[in-house]
């Protein structure tokens, strides 16, 4: 096993830093913490450079990040500011839609905040990073079954939390279906 060189290190950084930072962000909903932990994680990676296997480095990184996050921040009450950092794609042309959109965003922020961390990570990895269950399972070292379970729990949680928005959402979806059918 060759120890990592600085080039290897830079390469691994470019490949995985964003994913590590997102992972901690999904867990904490706090940008400063996510950046801090991700940076720390790569420092640890360099310290362990003699024992790194490239095949398993992604899992290792997430594991380091998770451990660091738990020891450093887990007990603290962190400010949850998801949409300060994450900006959904703009898709609200009319002012009325804009209003709905702001309300929706607020509802999601609350729902994500109250969602258990384990479900939130899986849910966001699937929705934002668009990873398949199998991929999420691999990266987190869990079974696909466990991912499925967390995902459905997450959706159930959203359904409860977004009750007020739900009528709008259902209507919107029905509308779009209706219009799509008209077009054809």
């Amino acid at each position: 096993m060759q120890p990592l060189t600085r080039e290897d290190f830079n390469f691994l950084f470019h490949t995985y830093f964003e994913e590590v930072r997102r992972y901690v962000f999904y867990r904490s909903g706090n940008e400063e913490v996510a950046t801090d932990i991700a940076q720390d994680t790569f420092l640890r990676l360099w310290e362990k450079r003699e024992e790194i296997r490239l095949e398993t480095v992604k899992g290792l990184l997430l594991k380091i990040a998770s451990d660091r996050y738990i020891t450093k921040y887990h007990k603290e009450k962190l400010a949850f500011n998801f949409f300060n950092t994450f900006v959904p794609r703009e898709h609200a042309p009319t002012p009325e839609d804009q209003l709905n959109y702001e309300e929706l965003k607020k509802a999601y922020e609350e729902a994500l905040k109250s969602m258990p961390e384990k479900q939130r990570v899986v849910f966001l990895m699937n929705r934002i990073d668009e990873l398949k269950y199998r991929e999420i399972a691999e990266q987190l070292g869990l079974s696909v079954k466990a991912i499925e379970k967390r995902m459905s729990q997450a959706l159930e949680h959203l359904k409860q939390q977004l009750k007020d928005q739900l009528t709008n959402i259902v209507l919107l979806i029905l509308n779009s279906c209706f219009f799509r059918r008209l077009k054809h």
């Binding site: 962000f25 950092t85 959904p88």
Partner: peptide, 8 residues
Amino acid sequence: FFAGGTFR
């Protein structure tokens, strides 16, 4: 809602 968003 979440797909295709950006991180700032």
